[in-house]
Design a protein around this nucleic acid. Structure first.
Length: 572
DNA sequence: GCCGTTTTCGGCCCGACTGTTTTCAGTCG
């Protein structure tokens, strides 16, 4: 029985693939994919909705038919339609469809003509030279299939945004230096600041047809050229990251930027709105008949649609059009709004710098305050502080603050939330601190109900200020622990607690979706670097990115406040 | 299969590149 929205979404995607291979109506196929996306984006459990008897048809892309299918899946754990489809065609065909260059038509042909049912069969057929005999296929296609089968797995992983940045920045500098190049920007999910990036979509505008395409192919990190044309090319960089380059004239720059920034769902909506007004929108501009009415700037494209500029981080079709039409888009928080950092470690636990080094580095960032939040004693592996050591650190910070100018160290702790929801240190010492970050570092495997009650109980303690890395996830390596985050958010609201956006690139926890809910409910956020060395202060901008994707304004974030304002928010 | 200031039918985003063709289908983003 599926437990998560994404399980049901996965089944819908599978139905879409199988229908497509059978040559079903493409719009019907799209309907399943749209519904799958809706389910993945949904911040709460679809199962809860079904059990509460809520109307699923109010969700975008879910009509009467799909609503009843979801109900069947939730109530019986079975999806008869999918089972039926699998009887008609082998389920292994969906993995063949995952091979680059093989879409529904070719997969169907491979199956019908050669009896290829899975990757193994495909490999055999290609090695035997039977693929090239099929009409519509050829020697080259067969070679590509074999190449794909061999190199699979290496380049399919999504990269952390921070990793992608380290590849993108030198490439942008390189392209920027080419004669005739006007602007270079990395669009796609990178520009939307998504936490992971599948590939890099680089957009270049140039005045005249420069030699940018050839120079791109010549870039020293290019390992393989996948495709190359006049205005588009795809390459694989060493390490496996794919880069797609698109070259447009400066007059089309804005339209191309909207188009290549995406998300796909966002740009589809942009074009739809254009169509409703009798306009054709593509990457070259906005056209009324043959006349270009916009396209040089992004602002211009949105303007002809009667919309204000929409920030890239909001372009996920998660309500940005409705908000834009209402003139209710949020004024997103920026890095320069940040006045301090509320989660940081020193040598006292598992950090590598002293109090003074951390303070000086924070001052250099232009921050007014820095909370020192070493671990508490339960986290023995990190040399967590007991009552006595914390008392000593309190005295050290008091002494240091007397010496320091333009920066204030805040006495704090990252105190463990124990299995039963109590905090790892007695209230008597916690009360002597300026604020407390409370985190889960153990017992990730509790049931959803127990985990939720653990967090709620912790928040009942008046010493509780900030919930550190609220779901415990590590992107790509550890799932969030099961917890009813909506209840946690509501409880935080009732108790004046703050939720952290942990800015470590592999955490970014809260994620964008919960961040948006927190802001809607009126729960405040703390964007913190969880620094273990001063070098980690640079992570702040990733936290900002995530907050912006979650529609957060400066008002929503506690560490945009002055020290005085912050202290007020940390008093319950 | 969804959706509706042109509502219960008839629409549903749009263009580039490749490999196969000999004018284009298939795939991709």
């Amino acid at each position: 029985m599926p437990l998560h929205n994404r399980d049901i979404a996965g089944q819908f995607d599978e139905v879409a693939d199988l229908l497509e291979i059978q040559g079903a109506n493409t719009f019907r196929v799209r309907a399943y994919r749209n519904a799958a996306r809706t389910l993945r984006d949904l911040p709460h459990s679809i199962i809860d909705m079904v059990e509460a008897g809520e109307k699923l048809t109010e969700l975008p892309g879910i009509g009467k038919d799909l609503a009843s299918k979801i109900e069947t899946i939730v109530k019986t754990g079975k999806f008869p339609q999918l089972d039926k489809l699998k009887k008609k065609v082998p389920a292994g065909l969906t993995e063949i469809k995952g091979i680059a260059g093989l879409g529904p038509k070719r997969v169907e042909k491979l199956y019908e003509a050669l009896g290829v049912e899975d990757l193994k069969g495909l490999k055999k057929a290609a090695e035997d030279g039977r693929v090239r005999e099929l009409s519509g296929f050829g020697r080259k296609t067969e070679e590509n299939i074999l190449h794909e089968l061999e190199t699979r797995g290496s380049g399919t992983r999504r990269s952390l945004l921070s990793e992608a940045e380290s590849r993108a920045e030198p490439l942008v500098d390189y392209l920027d230096s080419i004669d005739g190049v006007d602007k270079v920007v990395v669009a796609g999910s990178y520009r939307r600041r998504k936490e992971t990036v599948g590939d890099l979509d680089v957009l270049v505008s140039c005045t005249k047809n420069s030699r940018v395409m050839q120079r791109f192919i010549d870039y020293e990190d290019v390992e393989e050229v996948v495709s190359q044309g006049e205005t588009r090319a795809s390459v694989i960089l060493r390490g496996g990251l794919q880069v797609d380059l698109r070259v447009v004239a400066s007059s089309s720059y804005g339209a191309a930027l909207v188009y290549f920034t995406g998300s796909k769902a966002h740009t589809v909506q942009v074009r739809k709105m254009g169509q409703e007004q009798g306009l054709k929108i593509n990457e070259y501009g906005v056209f009324e008949g043959n006349k270009r009415v916009a396209g040089k700037t992004e602002e211009g494209v949105y303007e002809v649609l009667g919309l204000p500029y929409i920030e890239p981080e909001l372009r996920e079709k998660r309500g940005e059009f409705e908000a834009a039409l209402d003139n209710a888009l949020p004024e997103l928080v920026t890095l320069s709004d940040i006045k301090g950092n509320l989660h940081n470690h020193t040598k006292a636990s598992d950090g590598s710098a002293t109090l003074r080094e951390m303070a000086e580095a924070a001052k250099a960032q232009g921050w007014a305050y820095l909370a020192i939040t070493d671990h508490s004693k339960a986290l023995r592996i990190a040399n967590g502080l007991d009552e006595e050591r914390l008392a000593k650190q309190i005295d050290e910070i008091d002494a240091l603050n007397d010496e320091l100018s333009d920066i204030t160290l805040l006495k704090s702790i990252e105190v463990d939330i124990l299995e039963n929801g109590s905090l790892d240190l007695p209230d008597t010492i916690l009360q002597r601190l300026d604020l407390r970050v409370c985190s889960v570092h153990s017992h990730f495997g509790l049931s959803r109900d127990k985990q939720t009650r653990r967090l709620l109980r912790a928040m009942d303690n008046p010493c509780f200020n900030i919930l550190g890395h609220p779901t415990g996830r590590l992107i790509g390596s550890r799932e969030a622990y099961p917890v009813d985050m909506e209840r946690v958010i509501d409880h935080a609201k009732e108790n004046g607690c703050v939720l952290e956006i942990n800015a470590q690139p592999q955490r970014l926890d809260l994620d964008d979706v919960y961040c948006k809910i927190a802001c809607e409910v009126g729960v405040k956020l703390a964007i913190s670097t969880d620094a273990h060395t001063p070098h980690h202060f640079g992570f702040m901008r990733y936290g900002i990115d995530q907050a912006r994707r979650g529609w957060a304004t400066a008002e929503d974030v506690v560490n945009t406040r002055s020290l005085k304002g912050l202290r007020e928010l940390m008093t319950r």
